[in-house]
Amino acid sequence: MAVASDDNSTFKDYAHPERLVTTDWLARQLSYGVVGSSDLVVLESDEDVLLYETGHIPGAVKVDWHLDLNDPVKRDYVDGERFAQVLGERGIGRDTTVVIYGDKSNWWAAYALWVFTLFGHEDVRLLDGGRAKWVAEGREITRDVPDRTSVKYPVVERNDAPIRAFKDEVLAHIGQPMVDVRSPGEFSGELLHMPDYPQEGAMRGGHIPRARSVPWARAAAEDGTFKSRSDLEAIYLTEQGLAPSDDVVAYCRIGERSSHTWFVLTHLLGFDTVRNYDGSWTEWGNAVQVPIEVGAG
């Protein structure tokens, strides 16, 4: 059984307001004792694999993007069987409402939500503002790891096509709407990696020809929550000239920051066709003979 949406008025303008919950809403669910039931499971998805252990929202369970959602051998996501195991052991059934939150303005939470969507998990939402907002508001944090009773999650075949783009498709997509969500330095080719981040091995710098540079953070307010629909429309529709009916590809370095933008375009602005190119620059910047553009564009 899914739990009711957060009817918070700040969300009502978004295309799919049911995809977000506020910290207030989550605190209320905690006080009702719903968190951790078969109706509602809260997941923390962080870049830092140990951050959950330092303290998390009471009742929240950890999911690690790398260890739980990526295939351990090849560069791909887990298959249906492994996904069923990861969710089942966290007490998540096919009709459970899942709320995901995380560090870094919810990058990794959005990434997890996108992976859940590859498997068609119906009711998966983000905690607006993520971990940082919950902590900043002085809300309860615990190191207690909840004991979850395993449930049976069905083995569902991953359906990549609607929301995931592969290199050859991106090559054929050049000239159509494409959003590069990395920092300006990465886009221009001056930097091979995020400022302040380790070099993750791209041989070449620059961007996919004719991609538009819209750093992911432009969609986020100071406190890590999403900007209002009108502010988002001013960026993506007015300034960038995108339309909700466009076929859009978003990419970054490994597909985590572009999951954030994918969420914005799909769920907040109601675009019909947005695909995340998770190969992103760590594939494109290493691929032989693919075209590359350098400069600020």
Binding site: D48, V49, L50, L51, E53, T54, D103
Partner: peptide
């Protein structure tokens, strides 16, 4: 920083 427990570890 405390937000980077793996690095601290």
């Amino acid at each position: 920083p405390p937000e980077a427990p793996t690095t601290r570890g």
